[in-house]
Amino acid sequence: MFGKYADFIVSSYAATAIVVLLLIGWVVLDYRKQKARLRDLEASGAVRRSGRSATDH
């Protein structure tokens, strides 16, 4: 499709896709991790200064 330059073009798009997927994975997994830690803290009786639930926005 891209002639003799196919390797360079495909590699550029593949590198971009991999890094973007890693960034998306990083924010999604980190969100789940922080929510799980807050749930654990709430289960162990931790309360915010405002008195609201630890997992509450």
């Binding site: 973007v20 960034l23 998306i24 990083w26 924010v27 999604v28 980190d30 969100y31 922080q34 929510k35 830690r37 807050l38 803290l41 162990s44 931790a46 915010r48 200064r49 630890a54």
Partner: peptide, 27 residues
Amino acid sequence: LLFLTLHLAAMRNEILRRRVRSLQMMQ
């Protein structure tokens, strides 16, 4: 837009991380 989305999501995670930290310190 990808940057804006990722940045907003990462900021939300960081706020939650700091909330975890302060709750752990209070405990």
